[in-house]
Simulated assay, not measured.
Amino acid sequence: MLKLFRKIRRKLIDDKKIGNYLLYAMGEIVLVVIGILIALAINNSNEDRIKREKEQVYLVGLKKDFETSKIKLEELIRVNRESYGAAKEIMFLMDKEQSPSEQILSELFIKAFAYDLFFIPNNSLLNEMINSGSLKDIANVELRVLLTNWIATVDDVSNQEEFLSEQRNNVIEIFRIEGHSIRTIMDRTGMSSQLGLPLQKNASSNLKVLESIAFENDILMFIITSEATEDAHYQPLMQDLNNILGLIAKEIKTK
């Protein structure tokens, strides 16, 4: 093809057809430009295809991670409600004239204060995307913004959970300071047997803690903080999580 073009160009020069030669030269330039544009278009199309395929891989991975995180958050909300619900029951016991059984108090104490609550989402893929700059491969701007804000929101929730943990520890600490027995609670709830510990021969009673104003105050702070953690942190986080999953579902291409 190039030899043919050269022969045509040489013949036009030999025949001194300068005008025709100039038109031919311009046409040749146009053909070259068109060829370059076509090559660029093909290259851009391939790059865009590769980018979209990469995005789909990320979206599928993010969907799996956020679905797992949702299950964790749902369970965390359930346990938190159970926890502050048990704390409220202890408050009701403090107002009753008749003392409850040692068994009931022990079971409520374990249910309310035995476990710290921390939301640990599956953020490994998202962190990798952010650190590598691959978050820009997510075409949906709204989804990209939500994913960027997710990390900061989780950090905020973590700070609130630390505060809630402090309130829980305050209740346990005042229980110890006032000379009550953790061992009695463990014996009554079967924890001692699970740990292979012998039961007390002369068990101490914890019922007098229901007369403690300091214990009551700490429980109230725990209840307030627990409900605030759910209302102001867990529920908005769940809304963000659902929004992210909804947008991911729209962006994933079904085969």
Score class of each variant (00 low, 15 high):
77 I>C: 00
129 M>E: 05
154 V>Q: 15
127 N>C: 05
250 K>T: 06
224 I>A: 10
35 G>C: 06
164 L>S: 01
217 N>I: 10
245 L>P: 09
221 M>W: 10
17 K>L: 10
186 M>A: 15
75 E>K: 10
2 L>I: 15
99 S>Q: 12
195 L>T: 08
69 S>Y: 03
91 M>L: 15
230 E>K: 04
180 H>C: 08
69 S>D: 06
235 Q>R: 08
219 I>Q: 12
1 M>T: 13
57 V>K: 06
168 R>S: 09
174 I>H: 08
71 I>T: 09
8 I>Q: 11
97 E>P: 01
24 Y>L: 12
188 R>K: 14
135 L>G: 07
179 G>F: 11
32 V>W: 05
69 S>M: 03
1 M>P: 14
161 E>D: 08
21 Y>N: 10
127 N>W: 01
10 R>K: 13
226 S>N: 07
216 E>I: 04
242 N>K: 08
213 I>K: 13
35 G>M: 08
202 N>A: 12
48 D>G: 00
205 S>L: 03
170 N>E: 14
255 K>N: 08
112 A>L: 03
68 T>W: 03
131 N>M: 06
64 K>N: 13
28 E>L: 14
58 Y>K: 02
249 A>S: 11
194 Q>M: 14
161 E>N: 06
67 E>L: 05
203 A>F: 03
224 I>P: 00
184 T>A: 14
224 I>G: 02
239 Q>K: 08
172 I>Q: 09
93 L>M: 15
127 N>F: 08
145 V>S: 04
56 Q>W: 05
168 R>G: 09
80 N>K: 03
170 N>G: 01
161 E>T: 03
196 G>D: 13
54 K>Y: 00
77 I>R: 02
233 H>P: 00
20 N>E: 13
108 L>H: 06
95 D>Q: 14
177 I>E: 15
179 G>Y: 08
237 L>F: 01
48 D>N: 03
92 F>M: 14
128 E>L: 08
48 D>Y: 02
53 E>C: 00
185 I>V: 15
175 F>Q: 11
180 H>V: 07
42 I>F: 03
46 N>I: 03
186 M>E: 15
155 D>Q: 11
66 F>W: 05
243 N>Y: 00
137 D>L: 11
65 D>W: 04
126 L>E: 04
232 A>F: 00
101 S>I: 11
220 L>T: 13
147 L>R: 09
139 A>W: 00
252 I>Q: 02
189 T>L: 10
172 I>V: 14
88 K>R: 15
253 K>H: 04
241 L>N: 03
8 I>F: 07
71 I>F: 06
133 G>D: 07
32 V>H: 09
194 Q>A: 14
249 A>K: 10
189 T>D: 15
39 A>E: 01
33 V>H: 04
235 Q>W: 01
191 M>T: 11
186 M>P: 05
50 I>T: 07
108 L>K: 09
169 N>A: 12
237 L>S: 11
1 M>C: 09
68 T>P: 00
133 G>E: 10
5 F>L: 13
38 I>N: 01
17 K>G: 11
41 A>F: 07
226 S>Q: 04
107 E>I: 06
43 N>E: 01
119 F>M: 01
209 V>I: 15
